[in-house]
Simulated scan of single mutants.
Amino acid sequence: MRRRRLLVVGPLPPPVGGVETVTKAVLESRLKEEWQLAHCNLTKGRAKTTQGKFDLGNFVWAAIHFSRMLRSVAAFRPHAVYMAVTATWSGFLRDSVIAWIAKAGGAKVVGHVHGGWFDRILARTGRSGRIVRASLRHFDALLVLGTKWRDDVDRYGFEGRCMIVPSTFRQELADAASPFRRNYAVREPKGLFVGQIGQAKGVMDLLHALNDLRVAGTAIKLTLVGPGQFGDDLERAHALVKELALEDLVTFTGQLQGDALYEQYRKADFLVLPSHFEGLPVVFFEAGAFGLPVIGTPVGAIPDLLKHGENALLVQPRDIAGLAAALRRLHDSADERRRLGTKLMHDIQPYTPAAVCSEIGEAVRLVLEAPGGESWEKQFSARRLKL
């Protein structure tokens, strides 16, 4: 019996992000034993700071991606397409054309929504709202990262099927973290931020919280790993560090990958990511793999993974006082760092690459096989429990 053909559409690292990580995981997973896999590479040769912009460079790359997709569909003739769906407006428009090409080629299309702004896509009205509704008809199913997004999609009235399939982390990171044993009883705990540096990631809030703590007598050192998020965000962060006279406490490394990044997880004593908007950040999985306690915000799909007081500390976005209190709590208590870090290490196990890719495979398989309706939902839930 010939295997069915699955075309995987998405970018590959570098840079490392949630979409790139999942795309790579699917291509390297055991799904290739069941399916004939092919890849349409949507990697852009541009910095992440250009995401979401309507500029000439992005138009050129969109045209390149359309050409690649047309060639992939014509040559491979997939039965199904699994593709990432981004949450910026320009990215969503590009992805809708990619999905249309797949449907025109006769494939079933499963989109995996990433990013923290998909609710803004669904909230569009007028002409752009009609474009969104027409574009979503190209998808037979949407996979979303958590409960919030599933509820948003259900309220919107999406005509296809919607289910929760989370993000994952890189197997190489799990392998690097496996032999590491964390010492929680350190005298001067250090903080770590990993992500795009900008206001939407809460970096400015974090710097103000550090300043408030220092004024109150608690000096916490912080390493920020990552590129700028939008425009001059990185320059603004550097300027704020200088304005607040935090140069002796704050270090910028730029973007790191591989062993250089893993070493930052080993050296740190807690991770903080006080984002205003999110999907389900890969850095929480990475921190958990290294037994690192985390501070986050209850936005996007984060509450599906992080539970306040159980395996993390959660503060509301833009709550500088609350953020400072959480930082002090982890700084002052080795027992708290140990309790939260070890619990998070345990709780990321359902998010391993093998587990998540199995769920993606089940979703694609059921899109091809199931007749739809409630029975389809029940089949997915039943099979997911067996994974």
Rank of each mutant, 00 (worst) to 15 (best):
M1V: 09
R4A: 12
L7D: 04
V9G: 04
P13Y: 02
P14Q: 08
K24G: 13
V26Q: 05
L31Y: 01
C40A: 14
N41P: 05
N41C: 12
N41T: 08
T43C: 07
R46A: 14
R46N: 13
K48F: 11
K53N: 11
F54A: 14
F54C: 10
L56R: 13
W61E: 15
W61H: 12
A62E: 13
H65Y: 11
M69V: 04
S72T: 10
H79R: 10
H79A: 10
A80T: 00
L93D: 11
W100T: 07
V109K: 07
V110W: 05
H112T: 01
G115V: 00
G115F: 06
W117T: 14
D119T: 11
R124I: 02
R127E: 06
R130I: 07
R130G: 11
A134P: 04
R137L: 10
H138W: 14
V144Y: 01
G146F: 08
T147G: 04
K148A: 13
K148N: 10
D152F: 02
V153R: 01
D154V: 13
Y156F: 15
G157F: 02
M163V: 15
P166T: 03
P166I: 04
T168N: 09
R170Q: 14
Q171K: 11
A177Y: 02
A177I: 00
R181W: 01
P189A: 01
G198Y: 09
A200W: 11
M204T: 11
L207P: 04
R214A: 15
A216G: 12
G217C: 01
I220H: 06
P227S: 12
P227A: 11
F230W: 14
A237E: 05
A239M: 03
L244T: 04
G254A: 06
Q257C: 13
Y262T: 13
Y262D: 15
Y262L: 08
E263G: 03
Q264C: 08
D269Y: 05
L271E: 07
F277N: 15
P281Q: 08
V283P: 07
F285C: 01
V299D: 06
L314R: 05
P317F: 00
A321C: 11
G322A: 00
R328D: 14
R329M: 08
S333E: 02
A334I: 05
E336D: 06
M345T: 10
P353N: 05
V356A: 06
E359Y: 09
I360Y: 01
G361R: 02
E362W: 12
V364M: 03
V364R: 02
L368C: 10
P371Y: 00
G372R: 09
G372C: 09
S375C: 10
W376H: 15
E377H: 10
